[in-house]
Design a protein around this nucleic acid. Structure first.
Length: 300
DNA sequence: TACCAGGATGTTG
DNA sequence: CAACATCATGGT
């Protein structure tokens, strides 16, 4: 059991609400108040679950640990999982600072009150956020979840535990060795399939790595990402906010954001990119976080 | 039926 | 450089 204290401003309820927003989600499972996640780490499957108790996240690893008890290897795995959850639920962000910034904008401040303690539910794995955002390009979320489900269940590894099957994201290496034809029966457009192959090969070949990327300043990261065919401004910023802790990354082209802003500000129509860029100046430093809060408002 | 979905790219004028 | 077509399907 791993014990992970949470900061004062942390809402497990809102986190769960986000995690259960779509029934087709297959990269994590929520059973009651318990979250299950399967990861493939260095070729090995690791299943763990998370509970919230006494202001702490309690993490339990369910797959057998091959290394001896209290060995360095075991400690490394524990540290990895702990770090993963810390990143996933963004426990280290300074929410107070975000809330202070939000005071510049009455509407956003209101959302901050409604969702107090909501931290960005991210994707600790950059490859995952890139794959997911490419899948999500241009199509509605429901269809995007269908495509993701097919990708994961057809090409990813799985594990059965207590009569339940859990799924892990296919590795870059696995996807890199596929061809366009492998995607066709699953109703990926050719371009979408090609884009996924592009990033998979970039990761598999070592041309792109999260470790190298996260050392770079904001604009250099964005430029590196946009160089990959299939990754535009929206995708790059989405991944930067969800995986690289760039809280000011701003996917201004996002249709969900447009709809949320239209509703929250009671606008006649959806805001233009120019308008939205102007509006976002009030959220400066936290544009990505503001975006996440606006998305959350779409859940009702 | 037409139009829009958590866009990006290639082509055309 | 801006406007437009294309993608592949589900929802409204």
């Amino acid at each position: 059991m791993i014990h992970l204290p949470t900061p004062t401003a942390f809402s497990f309820t809102e986190t769960l609400r986000f995690l259960t927003r779509n029934e087709k989600e297959c990269l994590h499972t929520v059973k009651g108040e318990t979250i299950f996640k399967l990861l493939e780490i260095d070729g090995e499957l690791v299943l763990f679950s998370i509970n919230f108790l006494d202001s702490s996240l309690q993490i339990t690893i369910h797959t057998p640990i091959t290394s001896p008890k209290s060995s360095p290897q075991e400690r490394t795995l524990f540290e990895f999982v702990k770090k993963y959850v810390q990143n996933w639920f963004d426990l280290e962000a300074n929410l107070t600072d975000f809330y202070k910034t939000a005071q510049n904008d009455e509407i956003l401040a209101n959302l901050c009150q409604r969702f107090h303690g909501l931290r960005m539910v991210g994707m600790p794995d950059l490859f995952e956020s890139l794959v997911w955002s490419i899948i999500g390009q241009q199509i509605n979320l429901n269809f995007a979840y269908s495509l993701k489900e097919r990708l994961v269940k057809n090409f990813g590894k799985s594990l059965v535990y207590n009569d339940e099957t859990f799924f892990a994201l296919p590795t870059p290496e696995k996807l890199a060795n596929l061809s366009l034809e492998d995607f066709q029966p699953h109703q990926f457009s050719r371009s979408k399939a090609q884009y996924i192959l592009n990033i998979s090969r970039a990761f598999a070949d070592g041309n792109l790595s999260q470790r190298d990327l996260e050392k770079l300043p904001f604009e250099e990261i964005r430029e590196k990402l946009v160089q990959i065919k299939g990754v535009g401004n929206w995708t790059a910023n989405y991944s930067m906010m969800k995986s690289l802790k760039n809280y000011d990354a701003f996917p201004v082209e996002d249709v969900g954001l447009h709809n949320a802003v239209k509703t929250q500000y009671s606008l006649e129509g959806k805001p233009s990119i120019v308008t939205l860029n102007l509006m976002s100046e009030k959220w400066s430093g936290w544009k990505g976080y503001a975006t996440f809060y606006f998305w959350h408002s779409l859940l009702g």
